[in-house]
Amino acid sequence: MESLTLFNFSGQFYALLGAALAALLAGIGSAIGIGIAGEAAAGVVSEDPNKFGQVLVLQALPGTQGIYGLLIAFIILLKVGLLGGDGMVDITVSQGAYILASAAPIGLVGIFSAIAQGKAAAAGIMLVGKKPSELAKGMIFAAMVETYAVLALLISFLMINSITF
Protein backbone atom coordinates (compact mmCIF):
# COMPACT_ATOMS: atom_id res chain seq x y z
CA MET A 1 0.00 0.00 0.00
CA GLU A 2 2.91 2.28 0.69
CA SER A 3 3.84 2.61 -2.96
CA LEU A 4 0.34 3.85 -3.70
CA THR A 5 0.70 6.76 -1.35
CA LEU A 6 3.45 8.03 -3.61
CA PHE A 7 0.77 8.95 -6.10
CA ASN A 8 -1.48 10.32 -3.46
CA PHE A 9 -0.83 13.93 -4.43
CA SER A 10 -3.17 16.73 -3.55
CA GLY A 11 -5.42 18.47 -6.06
CA GLN A 12 -3.21 21.53 -5.80
CA PHE A 13 -0.26 19.54 -7.07
CA TYR A 14 -2.15 18.50 -10.20
CA ALA A 15 -3.23 22.08 -10.82
CA LEU A 16 0.36 23.30 -10.56
CA LEU A 17 1.55 20.45 -12.75
CA GLY A 18 -0.91 21.68 -15.38
CA ALA A 19 0.42 25.22 -15.17
CA ALA A 20 4.00 23.97 -15.33
CA LEU A 21 3.39 21.76 -18.37
CA ALA A 22 1.60 24.51 -20.27
CA ALA A 23 4.53 26.87 -19.83
CA LEU A 24 7.15 24.14 -20.16
CA LEU A 25 6.09 22.28 -23.30
CA ALA A 26 4.96 25.30 -25.28
CA GLY A 27 8.12 27.11 -24.19
CA ILE A 28 10.38 24.27 -25.31
CA GLY A 29 8.61 24.17 -28.66
CA SER A 30 9.01 27.87 -29.20
CA ALA A 31 12.66 27.79 -28.23
CA ILE A 32 13.39 25.01 -30.73
CA GLY A 33 11.30 26.67 -33.43
CA ILE A 34 12.93 30.05 -33.01
CA GLY A 35 16.31 28.32 -32.92
CA ILE A 36 15.74 26.64 -36.28
CA ALA A 37 14.44 29.86 -37.82
CA GLY A 38 17.33 31.77 -36.26
CA GLU A 39 19.93 29.52 -37.83
CA ALA A 40 18.34 30.02 -41.22
CA ALA A 41 18.14 33.77 -40.60
CA ALA A 42 21.83 33.88 -39.76
CA GLY A 43 22.58 32.04 -42.97
CA VAL A 44 20.73 34.64 -45.00
CA VAL A 45 22.17 37.62 -43.11
CA SER A 46 25.71 36.24 -43.47
CA GLU A 47 25.39 36.79 -47.22
CA ASP A 48 23.21 39.90 -47.14
CA PRO A 49 23.15 41.88 -43.86
CA ASN A 50 20.48 44.22 -45.24
CA LYS A 51 17.86 41.51 -44.89
CA PHE A 52 18.08 41.52 -41.09
CA GLY A 53 14.81 43.39 -40.57
CA GLN A 54 12.83 41.18 -42.90
CA VAL A 55 14.03 37.85 -41.57
CA LEU A 56 13.64 38.94 -37.95
CA VAL A 57 9.86 39.18 -38.39
CA LEU A 58 9.75 35.63 -39.65
CA GLN A 59 12.06 34.36 -36.96
CA ALA A 60 9.75 35.69 -34.24
CA LEU A 61 6.68 33.79 -35.46
CA PRO A 62 7.29 30.48 -33.64
CA GLY A 63 7.58 32.47 -30.41
CA THR A 64 3.83 32.83 -29.92
CA GLN A 65 3.27 29.29 -28.64
CA GLY A 66 5.50 30.03 -25.67
CA ILE A 67 3.40 33.09 -24.92
CA TYR A 68 0.17 31.08 -25.15
CA GLY A 69 1.60 28.54 -22.74
CA LEU A 70 2.56 31.33 -20.38
CA LEU A 71 -0.93 32.79 -20.63
CA ILE A 72 -2.62 29.51 -19.72
CA ALA A 73 -0.14 29.00 -16.87
CA PHE A 74 -1.04 32.46 -15.56
CA ILE A 75 -4.76 31.76 -15.74
CA ILE A 76 -4.32 28.52 -13.83
CA LEU A 77 -2.26 30.25 -11.16
CA LEU A 78 -4.95 32.95 -10.85
CA LYS A 79 -7.63 30.29 -10.66
CA VAL A 80 -5.96 28.44 -7.79
CA GLY A 81 -5.31 31.69 -5.97
CA LEU A 82 -1.54 31.74 -6.21
CA LEU A 83 -1.42 35.19 -7.81
CA GLY A 84 -4.10 36.85 -5.68
CA GLY A 85 -2.14 37.03 -2.47
CA ASP A 86 -4.75 35.14 -0.45
CA GLY A 87 -2.93 31.85 -0.69
CA MET A 88 -3.83 28.72 -2.57
CA VAL A 89 -7.45 27.62 -2.48
CA ASP A 90 -8.37 24.08 -1.49
CA ILE A 91 -9.13 21.90 -4.47
CA THR A 92 -9.93 18.22 -4.69
CA VAL A 93 -7.82 15.76 -6.60
CA SER A 94 -10.38 15.53 -9.38
CA GLN A 95 -10.56 19.32 -9.69
CA GLY A 96 -6.78 19.41 -9.92
CA ALA A 97 -6.89 16.71 -12.57
CA TYR A 98 -9.41 18.78 -14.55
CA ILE A 99 -6.97 21.65 -14.59
CA LEU A 100 -4.15 19.38 -15.65
CA ALA A 101 -6.29 18.07 -18.49
CA SER A 102 -7.20 21.54 -19.65
CA ALA A 103 -3.53 22.50 -19.83
CA ALA A 104 -2.80 19.55 -22.13
CA PRO A 105 -3.98 21.09 -25.44
CA ILE A 106 -1.77 24.15 -25.35
CA GLY A 107 1.17 22.23 -23.92
CA LEU A 108 1.18 19.45 -26.52
CA VAL A 109 -0.03 21.37 -29.53
CA GLY A 110 2.31 24.16 -28.50
CA ILE A 111 5.47 22.08 -28.58
CA PHE A 112 4.81 20.39 -31.92
CA SER A 113 3.29 23.36 -33.71
CA ALA A 114 6.15 25.63 -32.66
CA ILE A 115 8.74 23.24 -34.06
CA ALA A 116 6.76 22.84 -37.28
CA GLN A 117 6.32 26.58 -37.49
CA GLY A 118 10.03 27.06 -36.97
CA LYS A 119 10.70 24.90 -40.02
CA ALA A 120 8.11 26.75 -42.08
CA ALA A 121 9.59 30.05 -40.94
CA ALA A 122 13.08 28.86 -41.89
CA ALA A 123 11.80 28.02 -45.35
CA GLY A 124 10.16 31.45 -45.50
CA ILE A 125 13.44 33.06 -44.50
CA MET A 126 15.17 31.29 -47.37
CA LEU A 127 12.39 32.47 -49.66
CA VAL A 128 13.09 36.04 -48.58
CA GLY A 129 16.78 35.39 -49.18
CA LYS A 130 16.09 34.51 -52.79
CA LYS A 131 13.15 36.83 -53.47
CA PRO A 132 12.99 39.71 -50.97
CA SER A 133 9.70 40.97 -52.39
CA GLU A 134 7.90 37.80 -51.29
CA LEU A 135 8.20 38.45 -47.56
CA ALA A 136 4.42 38.61 -47.09
CA LYS A 137 3.89 35.21 -48.69
CA GLY A 138 6.61 33.64 -46.59
CA MET A 139 4.93 35.02 -43.49
CA ILE A 140 1.54 33.67 -44.50
CA PHE A 141 2.92 30.16 -44.96
CA ALA A 142 4.47 30.18 -41.52
CA ALA A 143 1.45 31.86 -39.95
CA MET A 144 -0.85 29.08 -41.19
CA VAL A 145 0.63 26.84 -38.51
CA GLU A 146 -0.41 29.42 -35.94
CA THR A 147 -4.08 28.52 -36.49
CA TYR A 148 -3.70 25.27 -34.61
CA ALA A 149 -1.82 26.79 -31.73
CA VAL A 150 -4.61 29.37 -31.40
CA LEU A 151 -7.26 26.63 -31.50
CA ALA A 152 -5.47 24.74 -28.74
CA LEU A 153 -5.19 27.94 -26.72
CA LEU A 154 -8.92 28.52 -27.13
CA ILE A 155 -9.82 25.02 -25.94
CA SER A 156 -7.43 25.20 -22.99
CA PHE A 157 -8.90 28.56 -22.05
CA LEU A 158 -12.54 27.43 -22.34
CA MET A 159 -11.83 24.31 -20.31
CA ILE A 160 -10.17 26.17 -17.47
CA ASN A 161 -12.87 28.82 -17.42
CA SER A 162 -15.61 26.28 -17.04
CA ILE A 163 -14.05 24.49 -14.09
CA THR A 164 -15.76 25.62 -10.89
CA PHE A 165 -14.63 24.99 -7.35
Binding site: A37, G38, E39, A40, G43, S46, M126, G129
Partner: peptide, 10 residues
Protein backbone atom coordinates in the same frame (compact mmCIF):
# COMPACT_ATOMS: atom_id res chain seq x y z
CA UNK B 1 19.01 25.50 -41.37
CA UNK B 2 22.09 27.74 -41.44
CA UNK B 3 23.87 25.86 -44.18
CA UNK B 4 20.82 25.57 -46.40
CA UNK B 5 19.89 29.24 -45.97
CA UNK B 6 23.41 30.22 -46.90
CA UNK B 7 23.37 27.97 -49.94
CA UNK B 8 20.05 29.46 -51.00
CA UNK B 9 21.73 32.87 -50.92
CA UNK B 10 24.71 31.57 -52.89
Amino acid sequence: PYAVARIRML
